[in-house]
Design a protein around this nucleic acid. Sequence first.
DNA 1: TTGGGTGCAAATTGTTTGCAATTGT
DNA 2: ACAATTGCAAACAATTTGCACCCAA
Lengths: 145, 145
Amino acid sequence: MPNRSERAETQDLRKVGLKVTHPRMRILDILGNAQKKHMTAEDVYRLLIEQGDDIGLATVYRVLNQFETAGIVVRHHFEGGQSVYELDQDGHHDHMVCVATGKVIEFQNAEIERLQREIAEAHGYDLEDHSLVLYVRPKKVGKGR
Amino acid sequence: MPNRSERAETQDLRKVGLKVTHPRMRILDILGNAQKKHMTAEDVYRLLIEQGDDIGLATVYRVLNQFETAGIVVRHHFEGGQSVYELDQDGHHDHMVCVATGKVIEFQNAEIERLQREIAEAHGYDLEDHSLVLYVRPKKVGKGR
DNA sequence: TTGGGTGCAAATTGTTTGCAATTGT
DNA sequence: ACAATTGCAAACAATTTGCACCCAA
């Protein structure tokens, strides 16, 4: 008997015209329940293997791409080669990556968004999209002495 | 007799402790005189070949990396795989990429910079670096009719 | 002279693709 | 039944690296 979240996932897939297959369900599940919100394809693949699913890495990439096209996930290109994917659920936000720990923090700032639109305008363009990533380091408290 | 810019380049290299070699001079020259300020390693390589220099692509990558480490160039990861490099001469600025033409426009905005620092602070971090890219499209003028 | 620098080819890394077998609907 | 989907291996693209030779200091 399918539980609530399985139903929801099934809906998500049907809604965007994708067949409800085992790999897609599992990947959706992982994206929704993992501790890290931002995962690389390999991260997802590793978790699948760990939980006993026999799904190929190529499939993970294919599914993530389809999800991105379908608007289910957003893909980011932070520094360092790999892309990271995150479920597109809580609206737009930007990211802060701690260079010391790798931790990713999300934030929103209407003022910055507005300024970006203004700047594009001022140059004769319409803002279509943007990518803002802050690379930060834990504030050193009382480090002098 | 070396001209003014050759001297300047020689200085730049000596200053950061890099031997003044033919490949490095040529690459510095290209970065400084090309029409595009933002170039991929292949762009640079192609120009080298065109102007008759016999320099390997691997060397271009190696030199660009050394230049980046030395702070002579800045490397950006816009959308779409390849990295682009630009001479680090006119201070910090962010970028706007036209998704229609690929054109790259630079801009500065103190307000945005300030907000970024504030946001990092507010989360208990020091802002170390950031990357902001606006993806824009030429404003459609009088498109209604 | 000599250690850093270079070219070339081979190796890596991240991601995509061809194809035959498999599976949702 | 049939087209969509998957797994695997091979293909790819961008970048890096090993190594013998070369050249700036």
